[in-house]
Simulated assay, not measured.
Amino acid sequence: MIRKSPQLDSPLRNFDVRLSPTPRGARLARLMAAEQLRFWGLPLDPAEYIVAELAANAVTHGRVPGRDFGLLLYVIGDTLRIEVTDTRGDRMPSLRQPTEDAASGRGLLLVDALADRWGVFEGLRPRKTVWAEVRLAPEPGNPCSGATGGLFPARTEVKGPHQAPPLPPADQTHSGE
């Protein structure tokens, strides 16, 4: 089921979809997120990459046959929040450096580099949600990168623990502050 905000000028916009826990479902999550961001008039970079990584993780590590995963995008003020919910609450993600010859294991490192904040929280058993937030406007006094058209702050800081987001409480949070 897809829900779109009826008003483009509304300060609150949301998009919610359930997809099959397959590689095709992960690809559809990325494509549908990109289309929704275009519809809202928002930049695709870096949100499209974050959705792709979180959806790929959901179908790779959070897959339970016959149970869909969910993608939720919403904008409040100048922040885009991306949430991907899967049905493997017993498998919590962790941020760790893969070996140089590893074929996978870099998805959350990419999310960590691209998102302003991200984290994970347990939902109703057996679910978990991995979320990421992207600011849509630079903070005052923070230089912008030309690579993203000047919309996102430069990413040179080291990320560390940060307070939980306002919606919903997170067990683990990463922030660029």
Rank of each mutant, 00 (worst) to 15 (best):
85 T>P: 00
2 I>G: 01
33 A>F: 06
90 D>V: 09
51 V>E: 07
170 A>Q: 02
158 V>G: 09
165 P>A: 03
16 D>F: 09
24 R>E: 06
92 M>T: 01
53 E>G: 04
119 G>Q: 04
165 P>Y: 03
46 P>S: 10
111 V>H: 14
75 V>A: 03
48 E>M: 06
14 N>C: 09
13 R>Y: 00
33 A>R: 03
131 W>H: 03
117 R>M: 12
24 R>N: 03
176 G>V: 14
130 V>G: 04
36 Q>G: 13
4 K>C: 10
15 F>E: 03
40 W>Q: 01
34 A>S: 12
167 L>P: 13
76 I>P: 01
170 A>H: 05
121 F>V: 09
143 P>K: 14
25 G>E: 09
2 I>L: 06
135 R>C: 15
135 R>L: 15
173 T>F: 00
61 H>A: 03
170 A>L: 01
124 L>R: 06
77 G>C: 00
57 N>S: 12
15 F>K: 06
123 G>R: 02
63 R>S: 02
8 L>A: 07
81 R>I: 01
174 H>Y: 14
103 A>T: 11
55 A>K: 05
71 L>Y: 05
25 G>M: 07
158 V>W: 08
120 V>Q: 00
85 T>G: 01
46 P>D: 10
113 A>C: 00
12 L>K: 02
23 P>E: 02
39 F>I: 12
12 L>E: 08
26 A>T: 12
115 A>E: 00
166 P>I: 13
114 L>P: 00
158 V>A: 13
70 G>P: 00
147 A>P: 14
94 S>F: 15
175 S>A: 15
177 E>M: 02
30 R>N: 08
15 F>V: 04
97 Q>Y: 12
125 R>L: 13
24 R>A: 04
39 F>G: 06
24 R>L: 06
42 L>F: 00
119 G>A: 04
153 P>S: 15
170 A>Y: 05
94 S>W: 12
8 L>E: 11
18 R>L: 07
89 G>M: 07
104 S>V: 11
166 P>L: 15
164 A>S: 14
31 L>Q: 14
133 E>V: 05
161 P>R: 10
104 S>D: 13
172 Q>I: 11
173 T>P: 04
113 A>S: 01
27 R>F: 10
114 L>Q: 03
128 K>I: 14
123 G>E: 11
158 V>E: 13
113 A>M: 00
121 F>K: 02
177 E>I: 03
79 T>D: 10
133 E>T: 07
102 A>H: 04
26 A>I: 15
21 P>G: 05
97 Q>M: 13
92 M>I: 01
109 L>D: 05
28 L>H: 08
21 P>M: 02
27 R>G: 07
111 V>G: 04
155 R>S: 08
110 L>Q: 09
157 E>G: 06
140 P>Q: 05
24 R>V: 04
153 P>N: 11
146 G>Y: 08
13 R>T: 01
161 P>K: 06
49 Y>S: 12
75 V>N: 05
10 S>E: 14
25 G>V: 07
154 A>N: 12
138 P>K: 03
107 G>I: 05
103 A>P: 00
30 R>H: 10
135 R>K: 14
136 L>C: 07
16 D>H: 12
161 P>N: 09
33 A>K: 04
96 R>W: 10
79 T>I: 11
152 F>R: 13
10 S>D: 13
106 R>S: 04
48 E>L: 07
128 K>G: 07
119 G>P: 05
55 A>V: 03
167 L>T: 12
56 A>S: 09
169 P>H: 15
72 L>S: 12
111 V>F: 11
